[in-house]
Design a protein around this nucleic acid. Sequence first.
DNA 1: TTATTTTTTTAGATTAATCTAAATATTTTA
DNA 2: TAAAATATTTAGATTAATCTAAAAAAATAA
Lengths: 217, 217
Amino acid sequence: MNSFTEENYLKAIYKFSLLHEKGASTNSIAQALNTKASSVTDMLKKLAVKKLINYKKYYGVTLTNKGEQIAISIIRNHRLWEVFLVEKLSFKWDEVHELAEELEHIKSEKLINNLDAFLNFPSNDPHGDPIPNKNGKMKKLKMINMSELKTNEEGIFIHVKDSSDKFLKYLSKNKLEIGKKIKVIEIEPFDNSFKIAFDNQQLILSENVAKNIYIQN
Amino acid sequence: MNSFTEENYLKAIYKFSLLHEKGASTNSIAQALNTKASSVTDMLKKLAVKKLINYKKYYGVTLTNKGEQIAISIIRNHRLWEVFLVEKLSFKWDEVHELAEELEHIKSEKLINNLDAFLNFPSNDPHGDPIPNKNGKMKKLKMINMSELKTNEEGIFIHVKDSSDKFLKYLSKNKLEIGKKIKVIEIEPFDNSFKIAFDNQQLILSENVAKNIYIQN
DNA sequence: TTATTTTTTTAGATTAATCTAAATATTTTA
DNA sequence: TAAAATATTTAGATTAATCTAAAAAAATAA
Ligand SMILES: [Mn+2]
Ligand SMILES: [Mn+2]
Ligand SMILES: [Mn+2]
Ligand SMILES: [Mn+2]
């Protein structure tokens, strides 16, 4: 059995692997988990002994098959709990992440599979992320970053890169939610800000915000 | 904030207080939590510093108001999760306790109050135990003496009259514990002894023992 | 290709929760 | 009430996860 802490390390390494080709560096993991590089090194040794990661001193780490399976199952738990909280317990999409961080570590196959069925086998969480099925398979999202859109192009908002409470609350405040159809009205060359239209309203997004929004492709 | 471990100690002391007048002894807590007396002493010191228990060396411990509030809220969580698992996720009543032991420690007022509402404010868990409301109030159990039961009647073991060590040890030895569902198989007219069934086993109780056991009504 | 900077690892501590064994205190028994 | 038994606490270790500071390796720059 793995501790909550070990599981969080595996998850961090897995998420890194989705964005980069190389293995995760000690520092990148430390940053993701808000801890120190020396603590990371200690944990990497431990995970290597358990054969959950491929670790060689001074090289980046990658997950073994076993490690990846665990990471994916934790992510499945996390996303299913988020759906539950939003759909059944009337939470807002910007209130569920931290709670899911705790719930994801409750270990019971039966619990999570029954929850999945209870929720009707949802394919995406409230932030648009795909939910792995019980075999760890999930559909890959086809999407492009909003900053790649040109004037007059449109598409459906399906994913946020940064799912921090702060960012999600900013979006909620502006009624900009997953599933909405968005059209680019104008791109300001000066600061790369986007003027967009959705729901019969217009909104200006900074370059930074635009880069955190993904559009279905 | 209190750790899972601290919460489990508070719960054990609270449960002890429901059955006995005196404070919980170091040994009784050790037994309840499946740990050693020396570990218990360490933890009691810590809980005393936090003003969650009244502790004096070599005396039994009791909960302070603050400690009791926490214990009751953990119990509320536990029982609501049990209802959820049985009513919504199709678990059997004998499959939920261990999972609820984990879920009960997820700390979020909003989570538990919304869960309560989602379940329609149930007043009892799947084993018949009352669920405290958000203010910690719960209805008192109505119970009858086991010796009043007739053949084939059944009920949940919820209280002991004689709380001497001897008697409790006798019960423990026979795995006859609070919360168990008991069915009367046969009453021997000769000595008024009860043959009962619980947990897929049978046991014969003397009249004396039967008179010390209370059944939910 | 040295020298400098950055990254990673190691060494040595700390904190929470636990344990065993030994020392005390309390309770029971004779 | 003194001896024996039982219960509780203390002393000293251990394990997991973390930290700071220092050492070592790798990457970058001059
Ligand atoms: Mn999340
Ligand atoms: Mn987590
Ligand atoms: Mn239970
Ligand atoms: Mn518990």
